[in-house]
């Protein structure tokens, strides 16, 4: 156990947070994660993992593809922002781990667009660390990322290229304990690449510590298939928090989620349809209500996921 905390502490201290590049924050993608307010770093067991904590893909047991679309801040005339996400996980074998691909995009027509392409790999590392998996399951992974921004400059700024791309990477680690405790850590944009046009504009390193808990039946209140997560995001010498809970009912078919962060409140649900050969189709929806933005009907996110053997 001490080794796990040592590794996590080292990784947190290793990096210094700066101003995060707003467009590459992960507050827009993964409908299940958004239903939990974006608190997902210690949950990560599906195709949303590549963006939240790459280590999580090592725990995926089925191949999975998820596709998400959204509309942000509906009800505001003149605001047309969409966030889209495509994630895919391919578990190879327990001893070989899993690989993933993910694409996320945030944009406003005729203004700007930000894309991230991720190629990930993760595996369980109990064998490497020598930690007995009877108490804790350890996994770690890394993501190779290509970030691209495309800006629709007007005539006065036409001397600037309209797009720019850089390569960087994430690392992630996940510890799931036998008693239900889950700890996740993800350090993103490790190389703080410069994506600036006029001046150096580094995509800042972003460190997220996730503390989670999973229970088949939450003691005392008997909530079935319960998951909770608290994410602490270290940015600019500040700490931001995200919190979320999830429970599956109706034979673990219907997932209900609640969550939030400083700026917004989230709810969501997802339903799983099982087909032949244990293939599963999942429909997820999440709604986010911003606290500060006025007269918005909120943001809507919907995803279709397919898991198969």
């Amino acid at each position: 156990m001490k080794k796990v905390f040592l590794v996590l502490s080292f990784l947190i201290l290793l990096v210094s947070a700066q101003t995060v590049f707003a467009a590459f924050e992960d507050t827009y993608w993964g409908v299940r994660a958004l239903g939990m307010g974006g608190a997902f770093t210690a949950v990560v067991n599906d195709a949303n993992a590549p963006l939240y904590n790459i280590a999580g893909i090592a725990n995926c047991v089925q191949k999975e593809v998820t596709l998400m679309g959204s509309r942000l801040f509906t009800g505001l005339d003149g605001v047309e922002i969409s966030a889209n996400y495509l994630g895919a996980v391919y578990p190879i074998a327990d001893e070989w781990g899993a690989v993933s691909f993910a694409w996320s995009s945030l944009g406003t027509p005729a203004l700007a667009r930000y894309d991230t392409f991720n190629l990930g790999y993760a595996r369980k590392i109990n064998d490497i660390t020598g930690i007995d998996d009877y108490y804790v399951n350890l996994s770690a992974g890394l993501n190779l990322k290509y970030l691209r921004q495309e800006i629709n400059f007007d005539e006065e700024d036409k001397d600037l290229a309209n797009s720019k791309g850089v390569i960087t990477g994430d690392i992630g680690i996940l510890a799931t304990f036998e008693n239900g405790l889950r700890l996740g850590f993800s350090s993103k944009y490790l190389t703080t690449p410069d994506i600036g046009y006029e001046e150096k504009d580094s995509v800042s390193n972003m460190n997220v510590l996730g503390i989670g808990y999973f229970s088949e039946l939450l003691p005392y209140v008997n909530i079935p298939t319960f998951t909770a997560d608290l994410d602490i995001i270290f940015i600019d010498d500040e700490a931001k928090f995200r919190i979320g809970v999830e429970s599956y009912i109706l034979d673990d078919k219907l997932g209900i989620r609640l969550g939030g962060r400083e700026e917004a409140f989230n709810v969501g649900f997802g339903y799983e349809f099982t087909f032949l050969n244990d293939s599963i189709l999942v429909i997820d929806y999440a709604f986010e209500l911003p606290f500060e933005i006025e007269e918005s009907y909120g943001s809507h996110f919907i995803a279709l996921s397919f898991r198969f053997n």
């Binding site: 406003t108 203004l111 700007a112 800006i151 006029e198 001046e199 504009d201 933005i293 006025e294 007269e295």
Partner: peptide, 24 residues
């Protein structure tokens, strides 16, 4: 930080919203 921002103008009791992009 660089990125897309939402603006909300309050004028004569009316709210006007839109998007802008700030680039470094």
């Amino acid at each position: 930080a660089s990125g897309i921002y939402v603006y909300q103008i309050k004028v004569k009791g009316k709210l006007i919203s839109g998007t802008i992009a700030f680039v470094k």
